[in-house]
Structures are given as structure tokens and as C-alpha cells.
Amino acid sequence: MSSGANRGIFRSLMRDPMGAFGLILVVAFLIMALAAPWIAPYDPLKISITERFQPPSLAHWAGTDQLGRDLLSRIIFGARTALSIAMTAAGIAGGVGLLLGMIAGYGPRWLDAFLVLMFDSMSSLPMIMFALAVITVVGPGTGTLILVVVLVSIPGYARLIRAQTLSLGSADFILAERVMGASSARILARHLLPNVVGPLVIVLSMDIPVIIMLEAGLSYLNLGVRPPIPSWGNILYDGYTSLRAAPSMVLIAGLPLVLATLGFTFLGEGLRDAIDPKLKVRVPR
């Protein structure tokens, strides 16, 4: 329906060097994550004690860790871990936030008041403390990590969508739909939804690096992804514990974190500039 508008957004995203850079990085990480088994030179779990702590070489481009596992392969599979957790969590949180936000913004006033109270009480919890509490109760693991991120992020997304829905709800084109006799479901799905998802996509894209960092942070603390599954966080931890034997490990494990964060942040900012018509300078055709 709005393919014309989307093509315009893509074009102005590519015209912005930062946005294009972000998009390329994100696509590279996505390919890395999806094609990990084919592009990783070794099995990331294969232990080879005789080859431990090797510096970068032609055989092992990024060297090996304390168990002789190939670091490059572990980082490539780590992208898979990081992105699948971040995108699953962001997707679920974004979807639930979208639904609740639209209900709060367009629904009856008492429901709005109730939902806003819920959002406020949820977001008053400090994220790390909450994460530690949930991990203590449920036990560490990928599922727990996603659960924590989802619970913590929902209120922010829901509030954003609620504000968007509220401001559009009184717009003339929505009133026009009501006058024509459109049902609330139709107005929400066909008219409000396409107009409120834009900002959500931007925020989600900027939040994915935050989730990736959280995953890495918790995995570093051994509270996230369980070894031996490769995660950038536990690679970083391994690097830290063997800092003297292989000083390059910490740097190599940190690099993808930095690049992924930059990529998603630039993409988010580029998208924001491309979608926000007030910032757009229209080039005459």
C-alpha cells in the first residue's frame, strides 16, 4: 500500500552516508548470523588443547582461545546468538508494546489509565537489579535473558505508541473514517497502525545494540548465555581471564560489539531522519 513511500525512505537513507554505513554493517551482521555454519572456518565448539592461545595467523585469522577453539568461528556464531536474542526480544517487546500502546491510546479512558499505571510501575524497576532478580528465580539462560529484556522494554515502546496514537486519534483523517462509519478495529489496523509503526521501528533499531550489550554484559557475568554456546560476552570473559596469555582476545571479542552497536545506532538515526518529513529536504524532480 505504501510501497512508494517506503522506496522514498530507502532512497533518502542511502543518500545519508551514516545511514548507508549503518545499513551495510547491519546487513553484514545479519548475513554473518544467518550463514554462520557456512562462513565459519571451524566448528566453534571444537576443542583442541594443543592449539590453545594461538595468536592470529593464516590458519586462525583471529587466533584461538584457552581451549584451542577458533576465535573467528566463535565470533561469527556469537553474532548469531547476539542477533537472535536481540531481535527476538525486540520483536516481542515491540509487538506487545505496539498492541498495548494502541489500546491505551485509542481505547476507553479507564483502560488507558490502568495501562499507564502498569507501564509506570514496570519502568520504575531498575533494569539490572530486575534482571538479576529474574535470573535468580528462573535461572540463567537464553530464555531468561529474552524474558527480562521483553519485560523491561515493553513500557517504553507502549508509551511511545500511546503518545503517537493519542495525537493521531484526533486527526481529521481519523475523524473522517469515523464519519464514514469505519469500525474501531478498522481504524486501528488500517489507519493508525501504519502511521505509528515508523517511530517504533526507529526506536527498536536503536535499542537492539542496547540489548546486544545487555546480553554480552550478562553473559560476561556468566548470567546470560551458558557456555559453551559462543556469545560475544562470554568470549570477552574468556579473553579477560586469559589476558596475559593472549592479550589480543579481548580486543577481538570487543570489536564486533562496537561495530554492531554503531551499525544499529547509525541505521536508527538514518531511519529517523528519513522518516521524519520535517527533517527531509525534498529534492525537486
Partner: peptide, 23 residues
């Protein structure tokens, strides 16, 4: 009121704003 919707119509003061921007 819903029953008479097809028999009534409203023309808006701000015609551009009354059209859905993504339609």
C-alpha cells in the same frame, strides 16, 4: 447514528488533513 452513516457525509475544513497520509 451508525445506521445512517452511508446516507450522510462530512466535508472537512482542512481537506488535506482529512485524507489519510499513507493512502
Amino acid at each position: 447514528f451508525d445506521r445512517i452513516r452511508p446516507r450522510t457525509a462530512l466535508m472537512f475544513q482542512d481537506a488535506v488533513a482529512s485524507l489519510s497520509p499513507r493512502m
